[in-house]
Nucleic acid binder design. Sequence first.
DNA 1: ATCCTCCCCTAC
DNA 2: TAAGGTAGGGGAGGAT
Length: 897
Amino acid sequence: MSYAGPIEDPISYGEWQSAEDLKPRDLESKDLMQENYNVARVEESTCSVAMQELSDAASGDGSHAPLSAPSSPHNCASACSDWTSDPVNEGPSNLKIPRSPNQKHSTLVDANFVENYFKHSRLHFIGTWRNRYRKRFPSSPGGFRCSSSGPSSSATTNKTIIIHVDMDCFFVSVVIRNRPELKDKPVAICHSDNPRGTAEISSANYPARSHGVKAGIFVRDAKSRCPHLVILSYDFEAYEEVADRFYNILHKYCNKVQAVSCDEAFLDATDSGVEDIQAFVSMIRKEILDATGCSASAGIGGNMLMARLATRTAKPDGQCYIPAEKVEEHLRELPVKALPGIGHVLEEKLNRRQITTCGQLRMISKETLQKDFGYKTGSTLWNYSRGIDDRLVGTIQESKSIGADVNWGVRFKDLKDVQHFLLNLCKEVSLRLLGCGVKGRKFTLKIKKRRSDAGEPVKYLGCGVCDNLSHSVTVPMATDSVDVLERVVSQLFMTSHIDVDGIRGMGLQVSKLETADSSKQGKERYSIRSWLTAASTKTGHNRSSSHEKGVDADNGKNGVDERQVQLQGDSSTPFIEMTEASPSVTAGSGQRGTLPPMNELDIGVIESLPPEVFSEINDMYDGKLAHFITEKRSKEKENISFACPAASGEAFAACEEQQYNEEEIQAVVSCPNKLFVGMKSEPVSDASVPNLDLISNAPVSGDSGLMPSSLSQVDTSVFQELPEDLKTDILELLPAHRNTESSLDASLVCANNQSSTGPSISSIDLWVGDPPEWIDIFKASNCQILWILAEMYQRAGAKKQLSSVLQRTMSQIYILPDVGTDGWAEAVSCLCELIKQYLKLKISTDIEEVYICSCLLRRLTARSKIFVEVYNNMLPHFQASVSESYGGSFCIASVME
DNA sequence: ATCCTCCCCTAC
DNA sequence: TAAGGTAGGGGAGGAT
Ligand SMILES: Nc1ccn([C@H]2C[C@H](O)[C@@H](COP(=O)(O)OP(=O)(O)OP(=O)(O)O)O2)c(=O)n1
Ligand SMILES: [Mg+2]
Ligand SMILES: [Mg+2]
């Protein structure tokens, strides 16, 4: 019983910690690193600029004469006014009044600071995207074992071949891909073109790098190194689109892909059966270039380490293979800093021991390295210096923490400012938890506090030299609610007893995560596996799956989960104590052996499941189900068995799908109404699934460039030219033409806020106004999926389209905890109504958008139906379980019809 | 020994 | 002007 007291007294959980000792990393480590680098590599006198603040801070001598006026804290105001008169950025009539620093764009002036900040933070974007691409193609734990290249994989003991692909100067390449005249000029991406500014360079192309311009340095240093440097703005939407294409291509060529970041991934080509690996890589790079207009480089090696090092030599726009016999040679003179995992701290430690190259590192015994650097770090150093790396491609597991930090522009004058900021931070974190479908039990608030001896930060609105304070609390009940977060966080903050003037940054992390739809129960009990194994038991089939590792990953968790559970009352109520016995896992560890054989599954139903559900089932069959279905379908269509060489890649893509594969919808048309061939069930009326096949042959993906571009400019006359079935299809979606969907009572959506009956939502003109009417309605609905949709729509950039926001949001709808409830059904109806009105709005102006959204609407409808069908076909006691797991309110009647 | 908790370090 | 985020690995040191 570790719970020591009510949440109102979180100080009992521990004390605030403060790092008071003076170490380089406690200063402005970025600047320090940056300038150290300059000293070592560039030897320019301007490099002492930031060092100045460093020594001021360390000595406490704020009056020390600076070497360069703009960098001096005391001259910062005049420096700022100089900036505004910078001819590069100043419009003709744009005479600005000098102002004091740290005002504009800080939390002091912008009430919506948190949201705006994340919209512009490059580091936020790349962090978010890394996560997305890891999740979009999750690998099975323990590495990829589900290769569908056949059972022969054990026979061939090929040497491992790893490929590492990385886009060249990604942010620059994307922005200049249609501006060939800039290709050979030095170009960098930065928020500011101010030659005295402290904005950071995000990425620099290779001509710029030859002048010493690189990611992370201030624009003023970049400009002084390269006066003709062309600075261009970020285009985050374009980065996203290119990254999507990049990953689509990688997955087309290889089913073992591990995302490193939005522009970088490892492929395991060992089992790909390719004989000429160089040609294979060359083909991939060519396709990336053709599809994106940006070049990628690639490294090939016997492990992930050597592949990554090879990429370094391959850049730019090249590829490099390091065969086993070249490894020693390649490493001998390589600086230790080039090894992944060795940053400036470790490099410095090694340099102090006269070790600068991997060759020298090899001279040290493993025992010595482990003694000096720790057990694992020591052996990694020993291995890496010899080119040894036994990591497997694809061993990313579920995320352990989710958080948000802001350490720029944070300035407060009173407690109200702080509370406002923290509330927004909580909203942000809550949104991310919802987006991931998880809740957390541990909350950590981090505060950056200006050191007493620190002057103004060198960086405009930066956090400067700070002490880091952090405090955390663990609660018994996992949550994702803004209210709970806010209460916890505000109490964490109160215990810091900090002077609000000194705050330079804050962050909130949530850990001890649990899946949202299972946080109140043992996960296994209501899992899809349970449905399958139970049905299988009934039909008397067994299938061994002992080689599976992924599915029983939760078992340990349930066993350990014998903790005291306290439920939290809403708003101000303290926790109510309540003990819960550990849910003994009935369908868990002991019963892993019983899945029905694949040919007894009703393929139509399986295919029509929500992607997440399908993916889970596919995992249970070791990834073979997707392939099985692909084959079966192709046999059905043609009479010959068509052996497709790329079948494994396709199977993987089908498994992970995520994009809008219309075949899914086509599968609904066949309308198999039972999960298993052997199960009996009532047929579902055909009329309830109308016209689902109409556009099933057209390829649809999440890509915005799906439709021929000529179509996106058409008007109604082009609509008339469309194939008859497509026209019918679209017209049918319009309320004026046909309205079989239930109209939704708006008051139900807002059930928690008001009980009076409002107007039907279908009678509201959702797309009137700016922001459109529905934003407020959805935001007030207390329905997670609608709230997320509205929030994401608001956040989408200027070029926002409903389709892209919808695509993101809809993938969440089946994993929300309220799935199957009345509220969920209403949410589905609301979405349908929204899409229908949107179609009406766009029908004559943007046929591409109409096309995509009509597919989405179709899918939404089909999915809802199929979910109900699956439920209807479950054994009664599982229906009860499902109903119970959804809070006892699973309501078939209210879904869709 | 093994686990847990609080950081630092690293990479993009 | 300017947007110094994010999350996992792992070491140190204390609890068990
Ligand atoms: N300190 C950094 C590092 C990277 N990035 C962003 C911009 C880069 O374009 C992108 C990818 O990072 P890379 O390390 O792959 O760098 P580039 O792709 O720009 O160059 P390279 O050709 O070396 O891969 O991440 C950033 O904003 N700030
Ligand atoms: Mg790159
Ligand atoms: Mg990269």
